[in-house]
Amino acid sequence: MVNLLFPLGITNYIVGGILIGLGVSMIFLLTGIRAGASSFFSSTISYFSNKEYFQRKLYTTTRVWRIVFTLGLIVGAFLFTITFNNGQFFTTNVQWWRLALGGFLVGFGTRFSRGCTSGHGICGLASFSLSSFLAVITFLIIAIFTAFIVGSLGVIP
């Protein structure tokens, strides 16, 4: 049964999830910030765009630490690759047009929603936010539905 639901085993998922939780926890314990990933895009745009929306304090006062947080994400994944993964890097086979179109919708949607899998998902759920709970249920159901349509059109992976 476990093999059927988790063909790659469950250890990686559980350990990885614990590490993610510890990272978010550490940031809250030390700085009091509930760190999500998607605001990074809007806050970084504030360096380049004078549009009123991007120049709000929400972004201009957080853009430095959001870049530092993102660098942490990248370096952390890199350290995993050169240690536990024996230096084996990875390149996706997902087609460029899916990355481009999907990425655009992810950028637009997460900013319109003000949260993504980490902001609404981890931080919002852990804060008992009803708004985040509804957002998480919505994007999970819609994403599963969409992925099934993509798969049924014969698009692989």
Partner: peptide, 25 residues
């Protein structure tokens, strides 16, 4: 926003945090 994000996630398998970290692999 969650509906639009969900469509993009389903098309690509990408969400913001994991996509950014993916540079590191």
């Amino acid at each position: 926003g969650a509906v639009i994000f969900g469509i993009g996630w389903g098309i690509s398998g990408l969400c913001p945090g994991s996509a950014l970290a993916s540079i590191g692999i």
